[in-house]
């Protein structure tokens, strides 16, 4: 095998390999989607976030508009303070409602934004004041059972 043939094959190999890494990044890992786009931050406090995880999607009308960036416990109010990173293309009115929702019964937990009618928009580091906490299934079931028991036997 002479020198130029080796160079050619190594060149092909390295090109294919780098192409594979780029494919993994763009097509499989979806690098281009949100991370690189300019974005701004919004904050919201919830009494209970349920199973909300870091990097969980933030959706408005089902469209992913951002991701959860940090979750902290506010030690003065003992509420969960969630910071979201929202795509710059999307603006939300000041009276937007943020809710912790679950897609399906066992699906992922995400934050749903419901847009209000206020003409003023939330700016960077703005705060969503109207929030709705996660629905904890156990609480709901125990409440239901308690109601059943206290209302006496059925029929």
């Amino acid at each position: 095998m002479n020198r130029s043939a080796i160079d050619l094959w190594v060149g092909i190999f390295v090109t294919i390999g780098i192409g594979a890494i780029v494919f993994l990044a763009l097509k499989v890992g979806n690098l281009a989607s949100l991370d690189s786009k300019p974005s701004y931050h919004l904050e919201a406090s919830f009494t209970n976030i349920g199973g909300l995880k870091l990097r969980a999607p933030v959706r408005a009308a089902g469209v992913i508009v951002g991701r959860v960036e940090s979750v902290k416990l506010d030690t003065t109010t003992y509420e969960a303070r969630v910071t979201m990173r929202i795509d710059n293309d999307y603006k939300f009115s000041k009276d937007t409602i943020a809710a912790v929702l679950t897609s399906g019964l066992l699906g992922e937990v995400y934050i749903g934004l419901e847009i209000g009618g206020d003409p003023q928009m939330l700016a960077d580091n703005g705060r969503i004041t109207k929030t709705q906490s996660a629905l904890v299934l156990e609480k709901l079931i125990s409440q239901f059972l308690f109601d059943k028991v206290s209302s006496g036997p059925g029929q």
């Binding site: 993994l24 890992g29 979806n30 991370d35 992913i64």
Partner: peptide, 19 residues
């Protein structure tokens, strides 16, 4: 197929850790 894959796999940490 592609949508679920892209929604669940992130460049960081998944692809970078793979490398």
């Amino acid at each position: 197929f592609w949508g679920n894959m892209q929604a669940g796999i992130e460049f960081r940490p998944d692809v970078t850790n793979s490398i």
